[in-house]
Design a protein around this nucleic acid. Structure first.
Length: 497
RNA sequence: GGCCCCGUCGUCUAGUGGCCUAGGACUCUGGCUUCUCAAGCCAGCUACGCGGGUUCGAAUCCCGUCGGGGCUACCA
């Protein structure tokens, strides 16, 4: 009779509206790993029809800056990960910046102290450091030894006279903590290896361990999907829930996502691959391509599917299909997916996205005339580019004011055979009145292939370099049509020495 | 060192005891097509870390082992 408990469980779960949060600590630009987490949080919220909460964990004022916070907001927006509560949109459980919630943490901290769940610890950093060293030497599990759990009146007076500022420590009771991680199953931590941890610094500011647990409870978070690095901090978080008086059935469900790693099996960092999302944006990667690729790191839709839209992602995403093993980031695959996504774009959309790159690269200034040309050229390069940044090398020949042939290509154009081809081409093109790519092709084929008996790649290669300046280009005849009769003729003539 | 997590082609993955002489995708190699580069199509290379069990049968379950990673802060 397995179905009875299943039904009860199902009701319990389905009664509660899902609330998932993405809570980065912006100590730098959001990176690939952060975004993968954000994406899964978002996808899960959308899949379940729940709410996606965006919270900024800026309790470490030394490392989190306003610029990084703004960059995080912008990055999420750019990716299309919209949030229901958080910075800029507000919500009923705000504020959503931890630095603005200090009084809330202070209140709970005072309560924990009064309840005896937490205690003041006067040990100095140096003393702690020394004791840790000793523990290591003695081969004992390192961690706070509980010295200040009981402080004699004399010691207390002494500490105070020394002007020591105490930290607030959570008392970990004997025993163990077991919780069910949706991805890893049942996980148990013996409290012998979870020492009493600090909730509030000597200066009164809260630590992550306090703030994260308080906020998740106060914001009624039902599901915590976050990086695997936080797995071992979960028992501490649960300890705070207990001190807050939260019933076990109201604890959020945890799901610890596997890491995204760099090529060399180390955590992704600047050293082994670019990690900042801004870097990818500036190189012409599409947000939907980044999301699609990142979704495939640690998750798969199954059925040999890979290319999914954002909408399909929200429909298909389930935590059950997330794995527990880490994934390596592969730029080649990202590029392939980016190319696929570019090919799926309609021309108007592609134009809109590619234009900023052409302007930034000073190929165009953005006039309507220029945009019209770009638009008519995009269809012939759409399947030739993998990133938006590649429109520049593909199309710059159309706009060059002082057109010059690539120095590397020059010797080839100067060869006798190439010169013969160009002279012949110049001759027949002069007489050509219908400047359509079909007509250009017909004329050149007749003159160069049939007339001169040359192989197409040889003959057209020379013309290509004369016209586009490079041996890699969009299709030649279309390129000539786009360039126009006058300029095409001028370039062919100019290549004749 | 201790605790915890993880282990299928080079990479991402499918796979939840028989459908697996292990499927798909990226990469790579070869071919077709072809005005270059792409795209597209076809073909090929390459994987269940290792050793024991359990079972008629294991990539799938158990144990051990090895390897990788995380945590071990008044960081998150």
């Amino acid at each position: 009779m397995v179905w009875v408990p299943f039904l009860i469980r199902y009701r319990l779960v389905s009664n509660k509206k899902v609330r998932v949060r993405f809570a980065p600590s912006p100590t730098g630009d959001l990176h690939v790993g952060n975004i993968r987490t954000a994406l899964f949080d978002w996808a899960y919220a959308r899949h379940t029809g729940g709410e996606f909460i965006f919270r900024i964990e800026d309790t470490d004022r030394e490392r989190v800056t306003d610029e990084y916070i703004q960059a995080a907001i912008d990055t999420l927006k750019w990716l299309g990960l919209d949030w229901d509560e958080g910075p800029e949109v507000g919500g009923n459980f705000g504020p959503y910046l931890q630095s603005q919630r200090l009084d809330i943490y202070a209140e709970w901290a005072a309560k924990f102290l009064a309840q005896g769940d937490a205690y003041h610890c006067y040990c100095s950093s140096e003393e702690l450091e020394a004791r840790r060293e000793a523990q290591k030497k003695a081969n004992v599990a390192p961690g706070y030894d509980g010295k200040c759990r009981e402080i004699s009146a004399d010691d207390l007076a002494k500490y105070k006279s020394e002007g020591r500022k105490p930290v607030l420590r959570m008392r970990m009771p004997d025993g163990s903590t077991t919780f069910t991680d949706s991805i890893r199953g049942e996980v148990t931590f013996d409290h012998n290896f979870v020492p009493d941890f600090v909730l509030v610094r000597g200066d009164g500011s809260p630590l992550y361990t306090l703030a994260v647990a308080v906020d998740d409870v106060m914001m009624k978070i039902t599901h915590v999907l976050r990086g695997e690095d936080l797995l071992s901090s979960t028992p501490r978080q649960i300890r705070v829930y207990q001190a807050m008086g939260v019933a076990p059935e109201d604890y959020p469900t945890f799901a610890h996502l596997p890491f995204v790693m760099g090529q060399d099996n180390a955590k992704l960092s600047k050293r082994n691959g670019e990690v900042s999302i801004a870097w990818y944006r500036d190189r012409g990667f599409l947000p939907e391509a980044i999301c699609n690729y990142l979704a495939l790191l640690g998750w798969s839709p199954g059925e040999d599917r890979e290319n999914v839209t954002m909408k399909e992602l929200t429909e298909l995403f389930t935590v059950e299909r997330v794995h527990s093993s880490p994934a390596r980031f592969d730029m080649k695959k990202l590029e392939a997916i980016n190319g696929d996504k570019i090919r799926l774009l309609d021309i108007e959309d592609l134009l809109k996205r590619a234009t900023p790159f052409l302007i930034k690269d000073e190929v165009i200034t953005g006039t309507p005339e220029e945009l019209a040309i770009v638009k008519s050229a995009l269809p012939i390069i759409q399947e030739r580019i993998a990133t938006l940044a590649e429109v520049t090398p593909m199309l710059k020949f159309l706009f060059a004011k002082n057109f010059v042939i690539d120095v590397q290509e020059l010797p080839k154009v100067k060869e006798a055979q190439a010169q013969d081809v160009l002279k012949k081409a110049n001759e027949v093109l002069q007489d050509l009145t219908d400047w359509s790519h079909q007509s250009i092709e017909a004329a050149l084929r007749a003159a160069l292939i049939e007339g001169m008996g040359l192989k197409p790649r040889i003959a057209f290669g020379s013309v290509r370099v004369a016209i586009t300046g490079s041996h890699i280009s969009p299709p030649l005849f279309e390129s000539m049509e786009l360039l126009g009769r006058e300029r095409s003729l001028a370039r062919v003539a100019a290549a004749i020495v």
